Amino acid sequence: MVRRTQQHRKHAALKLGGVGVLAVVLLGGGLTLASADDAAAAPQTANCPTVRDKLSNVPAAARAGVEQELANLDKQIADANARLAQQAANPQGGPNFVQNAILGPLASKRTAALDRIGIAINRVGGQRPDLAAFATCGLNAPGVPSAVNGNAGNGNGNAGNAGNAGNAGNAGNAGNGNGNAGNGNGNGNAGNGNAGTGVAQRVSCPTVADRLPAVPAQAAAEVRRELANLDSQIADANARLAQQAANPQGGPNFVRNTIIGPLEDRRVAAINRIATAIGRVDGNRPAELVNLARPCSTK
């Protein structure tokens, strides 16, 4: 009886040892997979044709409307890039999900914005441009910034990407925003030129992406989403400024009270989420980042 009990214990120990080895193997595999995921490249971004550089001789009376729609096009790209970042962090759907759920709707929205640009020009006697070919977008390779239209005054706004914070989202892009790692400090929001002289004012806010500390890989996707949100907020404000230029309303404090102030409040929330995402991983929450939420101004 004692001998049987000893054999039973030995057999149980072997089983437990085997389970332990298997657990170690699985755990090791899991850690390897996690490390591979953490080291993954930045998400893809929308590859859309620029539009500003395709326009010429925009009548002065149409410029505000055109600027508003160019800002809308950039916002649409920022929104699509935010969704692509979410998809990279949490894949869903089948092989056609990105095309059907992100790029297809983006093309439809771009078609509408491009039509409004043509209508704005034609309404004041200009020749309506054929912009339909510029509605369809593809995908950039991971980490490659989207070309946007907001780099007013330089003809093409071809540097900058709202929402693609490659390399764990700790640099900037072209202009005055937060999107693309390693290319400056902006999101195509710089300047207020158009197809002639400036009409609508543009928002100028402190950049965030180039002021970030080292972003842990586990927090990179969330940081990218919030950088995209910051750029989208600026695009929204620029669209409202274009509307204000086309149809002025309110008193001398209207822009500050209804556009700039609310923008700064939204920036506080987004930047706090960035700091929380970083602190959640390494315990070192960069609380000072919130100082970059303001001041925003117009130029």
Rank of each mutant, 00 (worst) to 15 (best):
A275S: 12
V208K: 02
V208G: 02
C296G: 09
Q201F: 01
N90P: 05
V124N: 00
G28T: 10
A293K: 00
R266C: 02
I260F: 00
G28L: 09
N170C: 15
N180Q: 14
N149A: 05
R123V: 09
D210K: 05
T136S: 15
A135C: 07
V21Q: 04
N167V: 11
V208Q: 00
V290R: 00
A113R: 05
D210P: 10
A228Y: 02
V2T: 15
A214L: 04
R9A: 15
Q68D: 03
A246K: 00
A64E: 01
T50M: 09
E226C: 08
P142M: 10
R256V: 12
P262H: 07
D37N: 14
Q92T: 15
G283A: 05
V24W: 11
N170Q: 15
A190E: 12
V21K: 01
T197W: 05
N158K: 11
R225V: 13
Q44H: 14
E226P: 09
A80P: 06
A147M: 08
Q6M: 14
V255E: 00
N176I: 12
G250D: 05
A41H: 11
A147I: 11
V148R: 14
N194K: 10
L131N: 08
G153I: 02
A112P: 10
V124E: 00
D210M: 06
R128A: 08
N154P: 07
A80N: 08
T111R: 12
A13M: 10
N154S: 12
V148T: 14
A242G: 02
A78I: 04
T111N: 13
Q7C: 07
T298G: 04
Q99I: 01
L26C: 13
A269M: 00
